[in-house]
Design a protein around this nucleic acid. Structure first.
Lengths: 216, 216
DNA sequence: TAGATTGTTAATCGATTAACAATC
DNA sequence: TAGATTGTTAATCGATTAACAATC
Protein backbone atom coordinates (compact mmCIF):
# COMPACT_ATOMS: atom_id res chain seq x y z
CA UNK A 1 0.00 0.00 0.00
CA UNK A 2 3.00 2.29 -0.19
CA UNK A 3 4.93 3.94 -3.04
CA UNK A 4 7.61 2.71 -5.48
CA UNK A 5 7.22 0.13 -8.21
CA UNK A 6 9.48 -2.85 -7.55
CA UNK A 7 12.19 -3.06 -4.96
CA UNK A 8 14.32 -6.22 -5.19
CA UNK A 9 13.68 -8.72 -2.45
CA UNK A 10 17.25 -8.60 -1.23
CA UNK A 11 16.93 -4.85 -0.83
CA UNK A 12 13.58 -5.09 0.94
CA UNK A 13 15.11 -7.42 3.51
CA UNK A 14 17.73 -4.84 4.34
CA UNK A 15 15.32 -1.96 4.85
CA UNK A 16 14.55 -2.68 8.52
CA UNK A 17 18.26 -2.81 9.22
CA UNK A 18 18.82 0.57 7.61
CA UNK A 19 15.90 1.94 9.51
CA UNK A 20 17.11 0.67 12.84
CA UNK A 21 20.64 1.93 12.43
CA UNK A 22 19.45 5.34 11.25
CA UNK A 23 17.23 5.53 14.33
CA UNK A 24 20.25 4.78 16.45
CA UNK A 25 22.35 7.43 14.69
CA UNK A 26 19.62 10.02 14.97
CA UNK A 27 19.14 9.33 18.67
CA UNK A 28 22.88 9.71 19.12
CA UNK A 29 22.72 13.12 17.47
CA UNK A 30 24.67 12.13 14.35
CA UNK A 31 23.66 14.40 11.48
CA UNK A 32 25.38 12.98 8.44
CA UNK A 33 26.69 9.60 7.35
CA UNK A 34 28.41 8.25 4.25
CA UNK A 35 27.76 4.92 2.60
CA UNK A 36 31.18 3.69 3.68
CA UNK A 37 30.56 4.60 7.32
CA UNK A 38 27.23 2.81 7.11
CA UNK A 39 29.02 -0.12 5.58
CA UNK A 40 31.38 -0.39 8.55
CA UNK A 41 28.49 -0.43 10.99
CA UNK A 42 26.02 -2.78 9.35
CA UNK A 43 28.38 -4.86 7.26
CA UNK A 44 26.85 -4.48 3.83
CA UNK A 45 29.06 -3.37 0.96
CA UNK A 46 28.99 0.39 0.48
CA UNK A 47 28.03 -0.02 -3.17
CA UNK A 48 25.16 -2.26 -2.16
CA UNK A 49 23.93 0.39 0.25
CA UNK A 50 24.08 3.15 -2.36
CA UNK A 51 22.39 0.95 -4.91
CA UNK A 52 19.67 0.06 -2.37
CA UNK A 53 19.01 3.70 -1.56
CA UNK A 54 18.98 4.68 -5.21
CA UNK A 55 15.95 2.48 -5.87
CA UNK A 56 14.05 5.10 -3.89
CA UNK A 57 15.56 8.05 -5.74
CA UNK A 58 18.55 10.27 -5.11
CA UNK A 59 18.55 10.48 -1.33
CA UNK A 60 22.10 11.65 -0.77
CA UNK A 61 24.30 14.58 -1.67
CA UNK A 62 27.42 13.98 -3.71
CA UNK A 63 30.56 14.85 -1.85
CA UNK A 64 28.64 14.94 1.43
CA UNK A 65 26.84 11.71 2.12
CA UNK A 66 23.36 11.30 3.57
CA UNK A 67 21.47 13.47 5.98
CA UNK A 68 20.57 11.13 8.83
CA UNK A 69 17.34 12.83 9.84
CA UNK A 70 16.05 13.14 6.29
CA UNK A 71 16.95 9.55 5.47
CA UNK A 72 15.34 8.29 8.66
CA UNK A 73 12.14 10.19 7.93
CA UNK A 74 12.10 8.79 4.44
CA UNK A 75 12.55 5.16 5.46
CA UNK A 76 10.10 5.70 8.26
CA UNK A 77 7.50 6.42 5.61
CA UNK A 78 8.61 3.56 3.39
CA UNK A 79 8.21 1.15 6.29
CA UNK A 80 4.97 2.79 7.34
CA UNK A 81 6.18 3.45 10.86
CA UNK A 82 3.35 5.83 11.66
CA UNK A 83 0.67 3.20 11.79
CA UNK A 84 0.63 0.58 14.53
CA UNK A 85 0.58 -2.99 13.28
CA UNK A 86 -1.20 -5.54 15.43
CA UNK A 87 0.12 -9.07 15.33
CA UNK A 88 -1.31 -12.30 16.73
CA UNK A 89 0.69 -14.92 18.58
CA UNK A 90 -0.51 -18.49 18.16
CA UNK A 91 0.71 -20.86 20.83
CA UNK A 92 1.84 -19.63 24.25
CA UNK A 93 4.52 -22.19 25.12
CA UNK A 94 8.01 -21.29 26.25
CA UNK A 95 8.99 -19.70 22.98
CA UNK A 96 5.64 -17.95 22.67
CA UNK A 97 6.01 -16.49 26.15
CA UNK A 98 9.49 -15.28 25.35
CA UNK A 99 8.11 -13.53 22.28
CA UNK A 100 5.28 -11.99 24.31
CA UNK A 101 7.96 -10.54 26.49
CA UNK A 102 10.08 -9.46 23.58
CA UNK A 103 8.47 -6.05 23.19
CA UNK A 104 8.72 -5.55 19.46
CA UNK A 105 6.87 -2.31 19.96
CA UNK A 106 9.78 -0.62 21.63
CA UNK A 107 11.92 -0.70 18.52
CA UNK A 108 9.26 -0.86 15.83
CA UNK A 109 5.65 -0.15 15.00
CA UNK A 110 4.54 -3.69 15.75
CA UNK A 111 3.03 -5.21 18.84
CA UNK A 112 1.47 -8.50 19.76
CA UNK A 113 -2.16 -7.57 20.33
CA UNK A 114 -3.62 -11.00 20.99
CA UNK A 115 -2.35 -14.45 21.89
CA UNK A 116 -4.10 -17.79 21.47
CA UNK A 117 -3.67 -21.16 23.12
CA UNK A 118 -5.52 -24.37 23.80
CA UNK A 119 -4.46 -24.71 27.44
CA UNK A 120 -7.39 -23.74 29.72
CA UNK A 121 -4.95 -22.70 32.41
CA UNK A 122 -3.56 -20.00 30.18
CA UNK A 123 -6.76 -18.84 28.51
CA UNK A 124 -8.24 -15.70 30.02
CA UNK A 125 -5.01 -14.54 31.56
CA UNK A 126 -2.95 -11.57 30.51
CA UNK A 127 0.76 -12.16 29.92
CA UNK A 128 3.17 -9.26 29.38
CA UNK A 129 0.13 -7.13 28.80
CA UNK A 130 -1.33 -9.39 26.13
CA UNK A 131 -4.66 -11.20 26.61
CA UNK A 132 -4.65 -14.93 25.92
CA UNK A 133 -7.69 -16.20 24.09
CA UNK A 134 -8.99 -19.65 23.37
CA UNK A 135 -8.28 -21.00 19.91
CA UNK A 136 -12.06 -21.04 19.55
CA UNK A 137 -12.01 -17.25 19.47
CA UNK A 138 -9.34 -17.09 16.77
CA UNK A 139 -11.59 -16.25 13.83
CA UNK A 140 -13.52 -13.62 15.70
CA UNK A 141 -10.63 -11.83 17.38
CA UNK A 142 -8.53 -11.71 14.26
CA UNK A 143 -11.36 -10.14 12.36
CA UNK A 144 -12.36 -7.72 15.10
CA UNK A 145 -8.82 -6.56 15.73
CA UNK A 146 -8.05 -6.43 12.01
CA UNK A 147 -4.93 -8.51 12.40
CA UNK A 148 -3.30 -9.90 9.29
CA UNK A 149 0.02 -11.14 10.63
CA UNK A 150 0.48 -14.17 12.88
CA UNK A 151 3.44 -15.62 14.71
CA UNK A 152 3.20 -19.39 14.78
CA UNK A 153 4.72 -21.09 17.83
CA UNK A 154 2.64 -24.23 18.11
CA UNK A 155 3.65 -27.92 18.20
CA UNK A 156 4.57 -29.06 14.71
CA UNK A 157 1.84 -31.70 14.67
CA UNK A 158 -0.85 -29.02 14.47
CA UNK A 159 1.09 -26.48 12.40
CA UNK A 160 -0.68 -27.13 9.11
CA UNK A 161 -4.19 -27.34 10.59
CA UNK A 162 -3.75 -24.10 12.47
CA UNK A 163 -2.25 -22.47 9.40
CA UNK A 164 -5.40 -23.42 7.51
CA UNK A 165 -7.45 -21.76 10.22
CA UNK A 166 -5.32 -18.66 10.07
CA UNK A 167 -5.84 -18.42 6.32
CA UNK A 168 -9.56 -18.75 6.84
CA UNK A 169 -9.44 -15.89 9.31
CA UNK A 170 -7.77 -13.71 6.68
CA UNK A 171 -4.17 -13.80 7.84
CA UNK A 172 -1.78 -12.66 5.08
CA UNK A 173 1.60 -13.23 6.67
CA UNK A 174 2.93 -15.93 8.96
CA UNK A 175 6.17 -15.92 10.89
CA UNK A 176 6.57 -19.66 11.24
CA UNK A 177 8.71 -20.97 14.10
CA UNK A 178 7.73 -24.60 13.53
CA UNK A 179 9.94 -26.82 11.37
CA UNK A 180 6.98 -27.67 9.14
CA UNK A 181 6.99 -26.13 5.66
CA UNK A 182 3.34 -25.20 5.71
CA UNK A 183 1.28 -24.98 2.55
CA UNK A 184 -0.56 -21.72 1.93
CA UNK A 185 -2.46 -20.27 -1.02
CA UNK A 186 -0.97 -17.58 -3.25
CA UNK A 187 -1.25 -14.17 -1.66
CA UNK A 188 -0.14 -15.40 1.74
CA UNK A 189 3.47 -15.06 2.73
CA UNK A 190 5.33 -17.37 5.09
CA UNK A 191 8.62 -16.47 6.68
CA UNK A 192 10.30 -19.45 8.30
CA UNK A 193 12.46 -19.09 11.38
CA UNK A 194 13.95 -22.49 11.90
CA UNK A 195 16.26 -22.46 14.89
CA UNK A 196 17.53 -26.02 14.68
CA UNK A 197 18.20 -25.39 11.03
CA UNK A 198 20.13 -22.18 11.68
CA UNK A 199 22.36 -23.90 14.20
CA UNK A 200 22.94 -26.92 11.99
CA UNK A 201 23.83 -24.76 9.02
CA UNK A 202 26.21 -22.76 11.18
CA UNK A 203 27.96 -25.95 12.26
CA UNK A 204 28.15 -27.24 8.71
CA UNK A 205 29.75 -24.02 7.50
CA UNK A 206 32.28 -24.03 10.31
CA UNK A 207 33.27 -27.61 9.66
CA UNK A 208 33.41 -27.31 5.88
CA UNK A 209 34.36 -23.78 4.99
CA UNK A 210 36.92 -21.38 6.32
CA UNK A 211 33.85 -19.31 7.27
CA UNK A 212 33.68 -15.54 7.49
CA UNK A 213 31.10 -13.19 8.91
CA UNK A 214 27.76 -13.54 7.23
CA UNK A 215 24.24 -14.25 8.00
CA UNK A 216 20.90 -12.89 7.10
CA UNK B 1 36.30 -31.55 8.63
CA UNK B 2 34.08 -33.55 6.30
CA UNK B 3 34.21 -34.55 2.64
CA UNK B 4 33.42 -32.82 -0.67
CA UNK B 5 35.17 -29.83 -2.17
CA UNK B 6 32.78 -26.89 -2.43
CA UNK B 7 29.05 -27.00 -1.92
CA UNK B 8 27.29 -23.73 -2.77
CA UNK B 9 26.06 -21.80 0.23
CA UNK B 10 22.47 -21.93 -0.89
CA UNK B 11 22.71 -25.71 -1.07
CA UNK B 12 24.39 -25.99 2.32
CA UNK B 13 21.53 -24.08 3.89
CA UNK B 14 19.06 -26.60 2.57
CA UNK B 15 20.90 -29.67 3.85
CA UNK B 16 19.34 -29.66 7.34
CA UNK B 17 15.92 -29.44 5.76
CA UNK B 18 16.59 -32.44 3.55
CA UNK B 19 17.95 -34.30 6.51
CA UNK B 20 14.94 -33.58 8.68
CA UNK B 21 12.40 -34.54 6.07
CA UNK B 22 14.25 -37.74 5.21
CA UNK B 23 14.28 -38.62 8.89
CA UNK B 24 10.55 -38.08 8.95
CA UNK B 25 10.01 -40.24 5.87
CA UNK B 26 12.21 -42.99 7.20
CA UNK B 27 10.42 -43.01 10.54
CA UNK B 28 7.14 -43.26 8.67
CA UNK B 29 8.44 -46.32 6.82
CA UNK B 30 8.60 -44.68 3.41
CA UNK B 31 11.22 -46.43 1.31
CA UNK B 32 11.52 -44.39 -1.84
CA UNK B 33 10.90 -40.80 -2.88
CA UNK B 34 11.22 -38.81 -6.09
CA UNK B 35 12.49 -35.28 -6.41
CA UNK B 36 9.02 -34.07 -7.31
CA UNK B 37 7.47 -35.65 -4.23
CA UNK B 38 10.19 -34.06 -2.13
CA UNK B 39 9.45 -30.79 -3.86
CA UNK B 40 5.80 -30.93 -2.83
CA UNK B 41 6.73 -31.50 0.79
CA UNK B 42 9.52 -29.05 1.36
CA UNK B 43 8.71 -26.48 -1.31
CA UNK B 44 11.97 -26.32 -3.20
CA UNK B 45 11.91 -26.76 -6.96
CA UNK B 46 12.47 -30.38 -7.99
CA UNK B 47 15.35 -29.37 -10.26
CA UNK B 48 16.96 -27.52 -7.37
CA UNK B 49 16.71 -30.62 -5.23
CA UNK B 50 18.26 -32.87 -7.89
CA UNK B 51 20.99 -30.33 -8.52
CA UNK B 52 21.68 -30.09 -4.77
CA UNK B 53 21.95 -33.86 -4.40
CA UNK B 54 24.15 -34.16 -7.46
CA UNK B 55 26.86 -32.06 -5.80
CA UNK B 56 27.42 -35.10 -3.61
CA UNK B 57 27.43 -37.59 -6.48
CA UNK B 58 24.78 -39.71 -8.15
CA UNK B 59 22.59 -40.57 -5.17
CA UNK B 60 19.45 -41.60 -7.02
CA UNK B 61 18.36 -44.20 -9.54
CA UNK B 62 16.97 -43.05 -12.87
CA UNK B 63 13.38 -44.06 -13.37
CA UNK B 64 13.05 -44.86 -9.68
CA UNK B 65 13.92 -41.91 -7.48
CA UNK B 66 15.89 -41.98 -4.26
CA UNK B 67 16.14 -44.67 -1.63
CA UNK B 68 15.09 -42.93 1.59
CA UNK B 69 17.22 -44.95 3.96
CA UNK B 70 20.36 -44.70 1.83
CA UNK B 71 19.89 -40.99 1.32
CA UNK B 72 19.26 -40.42 5.01
CA UNK B 73 22.39 -42.33 5.94
CA UNK B 74 24.37 -40.34 3.46
CA UNK B 75 23.20 -36.93 4.66
CA UNK B 76 23.60 -38.11 8.22
CA UNK B 77 27.28 -38.49 7.50
CA UNK B 78 27.51 -35.22 5.60
CA UNK B 79 26.01 -33.39 8.57
CA UNK B 80 28.13 -35.38 11.00
CA UNK B 81 25.14 -36.59 12.96
CA UNK B 82 27.11 -39.23 14.83
CA UNK B 83 29.06 -36.82 16.96
CA UNK B 84 27.34 -34.76 19.63
CA UNK B 85 27.90 -31.03 19.31
CA UNK B 86 27.95 -29.00 22.50
CA UNK B 87 26.73 -25.44 22.30
CA UNK B 88 26.89 -22.60 24.83
CA UNK B 89 24.03 -20.24 25.61
CA UNK B 90 25.05 -16.74 26.61
CA UNK B 91 22.34 -14.83 28.45
CA UNK B 92 19.53 -16.58 30.28
CA UNK B 93 16.71 -14.07 29.87
CA UNK B 94 13.26 -14.96 28.58
CA UNK B 95 14.47 -15.88 25.12
CA UNK B 96 17.46 -17.73 26.53
CA UNK B 97 15.22 -19.76 28.80
CA UNK B 98 12.93 -20.62 25.93
CA UNK B 99 15.94 -21.86 23.98
CA UNK B 100 17.15 -23.90 26.96
CA UNK B 101 13.80 -25.57 26.86
CA UNK B 102 13.84 -25.98 23.13
CA UNK B 103 15.56 -29.35 23.14
CA UNK B 104 17.57 -29.16 19.96
CA UNK B 105 18.97 -32.53 20.85
CA UNK B 106 15.74 -34.33 20.18
CA UNK B 107 15.79 -33.57 16.47
CA UNK B 108 19.49 -33.08 15.91
CA UNK B 109 22.96 -33.83 17.21
CA UNK B 110 23.22 -30.57 19.10
CA UNK B 111 22.57 -29.69 22.71
CA UNK B 112 23.11 -26.72 24.93
CA UNK B 113 25.76 -27.95 27.32
CA UNK B 114 26.36 -24.78 29.32
CA UNK B 115 24.60 -21.48 29.92
CA UNK B 116 26.07 -18.24 31.20
CA UNK B 117 24.57 -15.20 32.86
CA UNK B 118 25.51 -12.26 35.07
CA UNK B 119 22.50 -12.53 37.39
CA UNK B 120 23.61 -14.06 40.73
CA UNK B 121 20.10 -15.41 41.26
CA UNK B 122 20.46 -17.60 38.20
CA UNK B 123 24.09 -18.62 38.53
CA UNK B 124 24.61 -22.05 40.02
CA UNK B 125 21.15 -23.29 39.16
CA UNK B 126 20.26 -25.90 36.59
CA UNK B 127 17.55 -25.01 34.07
CA UNK B 128 16.08 -27.62 31.73
CA UNK B 129 19.03 -29.78 32.65
CA UNK B 130 21.63 -27.17 31.78
CA UNK B 131 23.94 -25.66 34.41
CA UNK B 132 24.11 -21.88 34.54
CA UNK B 133 27.58 -20.48 35.08
CA UNK B 134 28.84 -17.03 35.89
CA UNK B 135 30.19 -15.05 32.96
CA UNK B 136 33.47 -15.15 34.88
CA UNK B 137 33.69 -18.86 34.11
CA UNK B 138 33.12 -18.37 30.39
CA UNK B 139 36.69 -18.79 29.19
CA UNK B 140 37.33 -21.82 31.34
CA UNK B 141 34.10 -23.72 30.66
CA UNK B 142 34.22 -23.15 26.94
CA UNK B 143 37.73 -24.50 26.78
CA UNK B 144 37.11 -27.44 29.12
CA UNK B 145 33.91 -28.48 27.36
CA UNK B 146 35.45 -27.92 23.93
CA UNK B 147 32.57 -25.75 22.81
CA UNK B 148 32.97 -23.74 19.64
CA UNK B 149 29.43 -22.57 19.00
CA UNK B 150 27.57 -19.97 21.07
CA UNK B 151 24.01 -18.71 21.07
CA UNK B 152 23.94 -15.03 21.93
CA UNK B 153 20.85 -13.83 23.79
CA UNK B 154 22.17 -10.91 25.78
CA UNK B 155 21.09 -7.25 25.93
CA UNK B 156 22.30 -5.43 22.84
CA UNK B 157 24.39 -3.00 24.88
CA UNK B 158 26.84 -5.75 25.78
CA UNK B 159 26.62 -7.76 22.56
CA UNK B 160 29.93 -6.63 21.08
CA UNK B 161 31.91 -6.90 24.33
CA UNK B 162 30.66 -10.39 24.99
CA UNK B 163 31.32 -11.34 21.38
CA UNK B 164 34.92 -10.27 21.87
CA UNK B 165 35.10 -12.50 24.94
CA UNK B 166 33.65 -15.40 23.01
CA UNK B 167 36.25 -14.98 20.29
CA UNK B 168 38.97 -14.97 22.92
CA UNK B 169 37.59 -18.22 24.29
CA UNK B 170 37.90 -19.78 20.84
CA UNK B 171 34.28 -19.70 19.69
CA UNK B 172 34.03 -20.18 15.91
CA UNK B 173 30.31 -19.72 15.32
CA UNK B 174 27.75 -17.39 16.86
CA UNK B 175 23.98 -17.57 16.50
CA UNK B 176 23.24 -13.93 17.22
CA UNK B 177 19.77 -13.04 18.48
CA UNK B 178 20.68 -9.43 19.25
CA UNK B 179 20.01 -6.72 16.67
CA UNK B 180 23.67 -5.67 16.76
CA UNK B 181 25.78 -6.55 13.71
CA UNK B 182 28.76 -7.69 15.71
CA UNK B 183 32.28 -7.45 14.37
CA UNK B 184 34.32 -10.64 14.34
CA UNK B 185 37.67 -11.64 12.85
CA UNK B 186 37.91 -13.79 9.73
CA UNK B 187 37.42 -17.43 10.53
CA UNK B 188 34.46 -16.78 12.80
CA UNK B 189 30.98 -17.07 11.44
CA UNK B 190 27.96 -15.14 12.65
CA UNK B 191 24.41 -16.12 11.84
CA UNK B 192 21.94 -13.38 12.68
CA UNK B 193 18.41 -14.19 13.80
CA UNK B 194 16.70 -10.85 13.97
CA UNK B 195 13.09 -11.30 14.99
CA UNK B 196 11.98 -7.68 14.72
CA UNK B 197 13.60 -7.61 11.33
CA UNK B 198 11.83 -10.75 10.14
CA UNK B 199 8.46 -9.38 11.16
CA UNK B 200 9.09 -6.00 9.62
CA UNK B 201 10.23 -7.54 6.36
CA UNK B 202 7.16 -9.74 6.32
CA UNK B 203 4.93 -6.70 6.75
CA UNK B 204 6.75 -4.78 4.04
CA UNK B 205 6.34 -7.64 1.58
CA UNK B 206 2.66 -7.99 2.33
CA UNK B 207 2.03 -4.29 1.89
CA UNK B 208 4.14 -3.89 -1.24
CA UNK B 209 4.09 -7.16 -3.14
CA UNK B 210 1.38 -9.59 -3.99
CA UNK B 211 3.42 -11.97 -1.85
CA UNK B 212 3.65 -15.70 -2.24
CA UNK B 213 5.08 -18.43 -0.05
CA UNK B 214 8.74 -17.99 0.62
CA UNK B 215 11.06 -17.65 3.47
CA UNK B 216 14.38 -18.85 4.64
C1' DT C 1 10.47 -52.76 -24.42
C1' DA C 2 7.68 -48.78 -22.27
C1' DG C 3 7.55 -45.70 -18.54
C1' DA C 4 9.62 -43.01 -15.23
C1' DT C 5 12.87 -40.14 -13.19
C1' DT C 6 17.50 -38.96 -12.68
C1' DG C 7 21.70 -36.06 -13.58
C1' DT C 8 23.30 -32.32 -16.31
C1' DT C 9 23.35 -28.79 -19.84
C1' DA C 10 22.26 -24.36 -20.94
C1' DA C 11 19.48 -20.42 -20.36
C1' DT C 12 17.79 -17.13 -17.24
C1' DC C 13 17.38 -14.53 -13.46
C1' DG C 14 18.72 -11.80 -9.47
C1' DA C 15 22.21 -9.87 -6.51
C1' DT C 16 26.76 -8.03 -5.64
C1' DT C 17 30.47 -5.07 -6.47
C1' DA C 18 34.34 -2.55 -8.85
C1' DA C 19 34.95 1.50 -11.09
C1' DC C 20 34.16 6.06 -12.38
C1' DA C 21 31.80 10.11 -14.33
C1' DA C 22 28.76 13.38 -12.26
C1' DT C 23 28.38 16.81 -9.03
C1' DC C 24 27.92 18.81 -4.43
C1' DT D 1 38.81 25.22 -7.37
C1' DA D 2 40.07 20.79 -4.76
C1' DG D 3 38.22 17.06 -2.27
C1' DA D 4 34.77 13.94 -1.32
C1' DT D 5 31.15 10.94 -2.12
C1' DT D 6 27.14 9.96 -4.61
C1' DG D 7 24.45 7.51 -8.30
C1' DT D 8 24.96 4.45 -12.05
C1' DT D 9 27.19 1.61 -15.51
C1' DA D 10 28.94 -2.61 -16.56
C1' DA D 11 31.10 -6.74 -15.20
C1' DT D 12 30.85 -10.62 -12.34
C1' DC D 13 29.13 -13.89 -9.57
C1' DG D 14 25.88 -17.21 -7.69
C1' DA D 15 21.44 -19.45 -7.72
C1' DT D 16 17.37 -21.16 -10.02
C1' DT D 17 15.01 -23.67 -13.38
C1' DA D 18 13.40 -25.49 -17.97
C1' DA D 19 14.45 -29.04 -20.81
C1' DC D 20 16.08 -33.34 -22.20
C1' DA D 21 19.39 -37.10 -23.11
C1' DA D 22 20.83 -40.86 -20.29
C1' DT D 23 19.46 -44.84 -18.12
C1' DC D 24 17.27 -47.68 -14.58
Amino acid sequence: MTEQPKIPRATAKRLPIYFRYLTFLNDAGTERISSSELSDAIKFDAATIRRDFSYFGALGKRGYGYDVKALLDFFSKVLDQDSLINVALIGVGHLGQALLNFNFHQSSNMRIAAAFDVNPERIGHVLSGVPIYSMDDLQEQIRVQRINIAILTVPQEVAQDITDELIKAGIKGILNFTPVRVTVPAGVRVQNVDLTNELQTLIYFIDNYGSITTGN
